[in-house]
Design a protein around this nucleic acid. Structure first.
Lengths: 347, 347
DNA sequence: TTGTAGGCGTTATCAC
DNA sequence: GTGATAACGCCTACAA
């Protein structure tokens, strides 16, 4: 905006005494003109302070920009606070060609605002764990922007990368049940984008608007019978700590907790210590994701592993292929496995 | 690119039987036309599948886009792997108006590639810890894009947010010296963007190309006399672990380590355990940043605290003010303080 | 090898 | 209130 009037293609063309087309060619198709002319053009451009073709104008003319928009379900903050999400984004960014930049869309209360999506210069969008009815999704489709969804219900015409979350959660629950635990608590993600936290009712579960939460919950409930459940507003350790404090003071006290992320489980670990409970002696803990923190924990966390790196990489690959005009294929589903470490033990 | 030809302002105008200007007004200046006409325009637009003004064309016409480009000195990965950087970006993103998106520029070997910078749709750039001679910086200036630098030498015409890093490092070193330690090792960041790791020579220190590393090193060396120094290629725990293993097997063995980040210090903590050394009994550890992990560590880390949140917020505020046409003022310098916890003790 | 002409989709300035 | 008309800065057949 405050950028003063700068020289344009036309300025250079006039100065050199050639047409704009020739100057454009000097930058985009060096083989279309003599080396000497090109030389002359580039040098007078430099003398004039012309910095090369304007990116926005170029995009308008070519009808393509180069940015991959990543739309998140939570505040942009979460991208950096949540290790699991970080790994996915990391891998996604790594996979994108160096030519394509990553446009991080600020998400508030259920995803990026419709208006933000409308204004963004994006060639393709990657939606990560938005609520099912996010306005951003509708807007992206309205705009006709190719879409990749991750951890979300597939949309007609969109590419999808999915994770076997229900099976993964079932693995976690089965594991503790197999160890003899009968009183098992559940530490869950947000069910809806309303920042509520506390014990959860069945009604609220059935109306959940996040696919991941829904799937993992379904996995747990396929094994556990009416367990106490605490819903956290976010994925921070302190949230886990708070929820676990509630769960571990129920009567009868749960002897095992299954948690929807490693961060929540680490918070639960802290809560157990707060309460003087030993892990896994008094209470067994199972996380989800298998982030680095799970391995570094004391005791190291039993957890459900998903390949977060592959998740990000595949999302990027799908985005690039859509950009290249490919039709979206069937969903790519990544497996989950149980990693047994020291935070779980027999009842 | 594969986006098929979609209806434009003109399509709608023709359909409704008004001029393009009026349709434009319907979207941008509702008060410039009758409610009924606007109504009619919007509804036929919807019927036609027109999604509203094209963002790129709009930007061209208005000469402003809305994206804040964040250029990082390391691979984009670092943005998500390094907690300290995460906090800064988090805060930066939070501060940006919801209208402005954040364009993360992939950095390879010393920052984003000149070409990437040339193609990106950016209104203002924030450079974070790039090497002094990064090509991206030159390109940004050539383009006449307003610039905010963070943890980097000021450039003429750029706004700057700075941290008292030299003083902070000196605090860390003084602290362990005051505790009686004489053999103190240094665990340092990369001095240059060449991915080298290992013991460091004086020559390499004097030719360092990262301001932050240089400043912190200067702070340590203002207190310590020719300490053993290990340079890591990145800021990951494993890097710290590797370096500390080397440092802690020197003869005489250091009784204290000062580290350029909490992550490195946590890696050192692990290395100490590996070697059967107790902290702080056998070796004292000082980190840098005061991230959450430092508090959660066992023992909690003594560290140099900087206000990472303020750093990101101020960077964003400066970027916005430049966007609004403000002239860059003098650098904003943030203080550093020592936080004493349990990882340091008397010799 | 170089130039011409016609887009790309909006916004802004004035008249009417 | 509404409508011409001229930018905005570049790309790309196609003609020369």
């Amino acid at each position: 905006m405050a950028r003063e009037r700068r020289p344009t293609l036309d300025t250079v063309a006039r100065e050199v005494g050639v047409s704009r087309a020739t100057v454009s060619n000097a930058y985009n198709r060096p083989d279309q003109l003599s080396a000497s002319l090109r030389e002359r053009i580039i040098s007078t451009a430099a003398a004039l302070g012309y910095a090369g073709p304007d990116p926005v104008a170029r995009s308008l003319a070519k009808r393509s920009g180069g940015a991959v928009a990543v739309m998140l379900g939570h505040r942009l903050s979460a991208a950096f606070s949540d290790p699991a999400l970080s790994i996915v984004l990391d891998s996604l960014a790594d996979t994108l060609d160096v030519e394509r930049s990553m446009l991080l869309m600020p998400g508030v209360e259920g995803g990026p605002r419709r208006e933000s999506v409308g204004r963004a210069h994006m060639d393709v969008a990657v939606a990560y764990s938005l609520p099912d009815d996010a306005a951003a999704l509708a807007e992206v489709r309205r705009r006709g922007v190719p879409l990749v969804v991750v951890d979300q219900p597939a949309l007609p015409g969109s590419a999808m990368v999915d994770v076997a979350d229900r099976a993964g959660a079932a693995l976690a629950a089965s594991h503790v049940v197999a160890l003899g635990h009968r009183e098992v608590g559940v530490l869950a993600f947000a069910l809806s984008p309303d920042d509520r936290s506390g014990p959860v009712s069945a009604a609220r579960i059935s109306s959940s608007r996040y696919r991941v939460t829904r799937e993992r919950m379904a996995g747990y409930l396929s094994v556990l019978d009416d367990p106490p459940i605490w819903e956290t507003p976010g994925c921070l350790r302190d949230h886990g700590r708070e929820g676990a404090r509630w769960l571990l003071t129920r009567v009868p006290r749960p002897t095992a907790l299954v948690c929807m992320s490693d961060e929540l489980a680490l918070g639960a670990l802290r809560a157990a210590h707060d309460l003087g409970l030993s892990v896994p002696g008094d209470v067994s803990l199972v996380g989800y994701d298998d982030t680095q923190a799970a391995q570094w924990a004391d005791p190291p966390l039993t957890t459900v592993r998903q390949d977060l790196t592959a998740k990000g990489r595949i999302a990027a690959e799908l985005a690039i292929s859509l950009l290249d005009g490919a039709r979206p294929g069937p969903a790519r589903t990544l497996p989950t496995t149980l990693v047994e470490r020291a935070s779980t033990g027999p009842r």
